[in-house]
């Protein structure tokens, strides 16, 4: 297990490097320049743009910029935002808890509801429950999260006045002020994820329940509860776990929109604004943070994968 964990961590390094390179290249590929946006209000002339570009170093060859940029971002100093009068790292650290709250809560809710529901539909296949779960998960996947967000705001926050409609309170202020503002966005974000994991769990469980070792567990007289949890689910988890890593990445994508809908000052909201303004430093830093969380979640997923799969663990 230790050897496997070390190997995964070592692989983490080149993955991060590739991700960073992609972030840099894709950001610079955006049409338009930050300088033009920065000077947007003023009557711009070419000479002025050139001058500011030189000051900011954007006139140098892209490779030189890259070589300079890479060690800087790795050391955590992400540079100065062109638009905020603060270092990018500071802005990001303020925003990170918001996005993490949203995506991690959504993932936990997804796992807590989706996996049991999927198991249940598989075990009771063809039953009313299986049928309802199927309809619900199709619905969850078909409804766009932002629309769901609007409906939740209109019904739960505006009409029923049960929960606040938007904004964010740090958890330090109190669990409830924080949680009450996270509930609706979490529901909006997790519903489509739940649909996905229910289907994934169901089909994997159905497959595993047909295997000979599950038949053997029954032939040994194991009670059905043990057959399902110890014999079937343990093996199904190998595949379900993989889906969870993917789900988190999807959730990060979804969070960008959900943060807009619920006016949550998270990374997604920041990145959108930074992209529009061509604020390279903020944009790259924000995506770097998102990538980092996704990679970390996938690292955890890989380790959990090994836990459920002795063939991987002992290889």
């Amino acid at each position: 297990m230790l050897a496997y964990a070390l190997r995964r961590i070592v692989i983490f390094v080149p993955t991060l490097f590739i991700a960073l390179t992609l972030i840099f290249v894709l950001t610079r590929l955006l049409p338009g320049s930050p300088v033009a946006t920065l000077l947007g209000g003023q009557s711009v002339n070419a000479a002025k743009i050139e001058e500011v570009s030189r000051q900011l170093g954007y006139d140098r060859p892209i490779l030189v910029q890259y070589v300079e940029w890479l060690p800087r971002i790795l050391s955590g100093s992400l540079g100065q935002s062109l638009f905020f009068t603060k270092p990018v790292a500071e802005v990001l650290l303020q925003r990170l808890p918001v996005t993490l709250s949203l995506t991690v809560l959504a993932l936990l809710v997804t796992i807590a509801i989706g996996i049991p529901l999927g198991i249940w539909s598989a075990v009771r296949r063809g039953s009313l429950l299986d049928y309802s779960a199927n309809v619900l998960s199709s619905l969850g996947m078909a409804l766009p999260p932002f629309w769901l967000g609007f409906v939740l705001i209109l019904v739960v926050a505006v009409a029923l006045k049960w929960l606040p409609s938007s904004g964010y309170r740090p958890i330090e202020i109190g669990i409830w002020p924080w949680l009450s503002r996270m509930i609706l966005p979490t529901i909006a974000l997790s519903l489509s994820q739940i649909g996905l994991i229910v289907r994934m769990t169901r089909s994997t469980m159905l497959e595993v329940l047909e295997t000979e070792y599950v038949g053997m567990a029954r032939a040994k007289g194991m009670p059905e509860r043990i057959v399902i949890i110890r014999h079937a689910l343990r093996n199904a988890m190998v595949q379900i776990i993989t889906a969870i890593g993917l789900l988190y990445a999807l959730g990060l994508g979804g969070s960008v929109i959900i943060e807009q809908v619920f006016a949550l000052p998270g990374l997604g909201e920041l990145i959108t604004t930074a992209a529009i303004r061509r604020d390279y430093a903020t944009l790259e830093g924000g995506i770097f943070y998102l990538t980092l969380t996704a990679l970390l979640v996938n690292l955890v997923v890989d380790l959990a994968y090994a836990y459920f799969n002795p063939r991987v663990r002992l290889a």
């Binding site: 000979e212 032939a219 007289g221 190998v238 799969n309 063939r311």
Partner: peptide
């Protein structure tokens, strides 16, 4: 099952639980 009547399966490769 497994107590007074028991099964020896066909495929030892697939009838033991891999996990």
């Amino acid at each position: 099952r497994g107590d007074r009547m028991a099964l020896v399966p066909q495929e030892p490769m697939t009838s033991l639980n891999p996990a």
